[in-house]
Design a protein around this nucleic acid. Structure first.
Lengths: 109, 109
DNA sequence: AGAAAATGCAACCAATGAGTTGCATTTTAG
DNA sequence: CTAAAATGCAACTCATTGGTTGCATTTTCT
């Protein structure tokens, strides 16, 4: 397994987070906890259907989960894949620091 | 300033990272250090022009920087905005943990 | 000077994405 | 039972995006 493993896997997660509306939904779910579609729609600038679509995109990336509850559907954050994204960013930051260190050492010689 | 500040700002960064090709470019720049366009193209499945476009997208999100050097243009990672993304993920993870704790406490009562 | 290397610029294309509106279906509250 | 609430489904529009090809420009090397 190459050191670049996981790069491909992280892309969909970032793509899902790369939209203001979705990012706002994630932020809201994380701070306020699970909520229904209509609840999430009130407070979002867009339509209920737009919110629904965004939630499905987030679900596709494994970032949220939904449970049917009576006539409403409750959506909640799923933190697993968020960790994947964090790990990627950590690796990149670390790799970059190392690269700078190598560069510095190379210049000093 | 609201606790949700920065949400809007982080979206473009995530969007820039939300593509396999770009993610691979970022990973490569972080592990191997600065490189020219043609160097980055060799190893990427796509065309030089595609790579160029992706680099400009990354630059638009403040993730890379470019310097002209003779007849080639050298691209390098810019770590500042990566930190913004990390902070967002940290905040969301933390918020979610808190939400779960509140939920647990609420159930126990 | 002249060829090869590394980029830049522009037009074009197919696919995807974000958002909407309209109508049907399922639950719940009186 | 019936109206209102919450959601599901589908079609449609418009803009963006990832990618390509073709040709012009700038630098380097011999």
């Amino acid at each position: 397994m190459s050191r670049r493993s996981g790069v491909r896997a992280a892309a969909p997660v970032f793509a899902a987070l790369g939209d203001e509306t979705r990012l706002a939904l994630v932020a809201r779910l994380s701070s306020d906890g699970p909520a229904s579609i209509s609840r999430l729609t009130s407070g979002s600038a867009v339509t209920r259907q737009a919110v629904t679509k965004h939630l499905h995109v987030l679900a596709g990336a494994g970032l949220v989960r939904d449970v049917r509850q009576g006539r409403e559907r409750i959506w909640a954050l799923e933190s697993e894949h968020l960790e994947d994204a964090r790990r990627f960013l950590d690796r990149v930051s670390q790799g970059w620091d190392d690269a700078l260190a190598r560069l510095r050492k190379h210049v000093e010689e």
